[in-house]
Amino acid sequence: MAYDTNTVEASPAPPDAGTALVEVRDLGVEFVSRESTTCAVNGVSFSLAPGEVLCIIGESGSGKSVTMRALMKLHPPKYTRISGYMRVGDHEVSACSEREMRSIRGSQISMIFQEPMTSLDPVYRIGDQIAETVIRHKKCSRAEGYARALELLKLVGVPSPERRLNAYPHELSGGLRQRAMIAVALSCSPTLLLADEPTTALDATVQIQVLVLLRRLQQELGMAVIFVTHDLSVAAQIADKVAVMYAGRIVEYGPVAKVLQHSAHPYTKGMLASTVSGHMRGQAIEAIPGSPPDMRVRMEGCSFAPRCKSVMPACRQGTPPLLTVSHGHEAACLNFA
């Protein structure tokens, strides 16, 4: 089973690379400390069309959040080495200065988090925070800013929005806080929304409300969304495309239905098999053995090989490139070579 290891470096450029809103080629992120170097992201490439929803699925330490934060340049430059090419709209993010990034953040690209209190300022009223962002980026008047704030709170489905404009973040319930954070993120009509597990900390009945809201907003506003999650069923609810990450690499990529219903990579298959559902009662679950690799150690070959049940000798020799499974559906597994 011979293949060219060089293809790893130059992943096939997607056909619509020119018209894509987001283009990431061969992104690498390394965290450097005195004791070790952690290779958190290792040659990730993807592109995203305007108005498309990409879900990056992965477990803790897979590099999913790191990838997204790199796109926003949120990593402390002192301890981070970023390589590769990133473009969002007309901005080549990988070449942007911190000053340029500040003007892009919040206007072109917005971000929402798992914990709303990380992005909402506890000492300002909700209305002030939204209006502030609008005024800063759009250079409009105060009245216009507040009108926009009210409009946004209505848009994200906050009940009695006039009253909530004057509320402080801690006065809101978890679900409302999440909605308020989404309102702040949408205040300057971004073309790209980055969502870092925004529903993970929410209760089931609230999570579904937020997911439905996000999908509605995405369609109405025509935003592109990159949604990071560890939960396959959340991806099933919201994604157009899915990228499954493992140990800093994309191991499977494709339309959501193909990846979740006809998954190709053994890791994706294992994740699906080990997701518990009621009808498995009384049976042992088919768990993936072992634990994810330590990213401080550089590893030869496919990083999933030690846990993979269909491992071959060739798997341990070089990193498998993304190989086409069917049209638009790729998996980094030698079983498809």
Binding site: E286, P289, S291, R296, V297
Partner: peptide, 18 residues
């Protein structure tokens, strides 16, 4: 193939780690 309880019993390659 069910995850065996001895998943972690094999000595991992610790030599390169801090």
């Amino acid at each position: 193939s069910v995850a065996s309880l001895s998943d972690f019993t094999a000595a991992p390659a610790k030599d390169k780690l801090p």
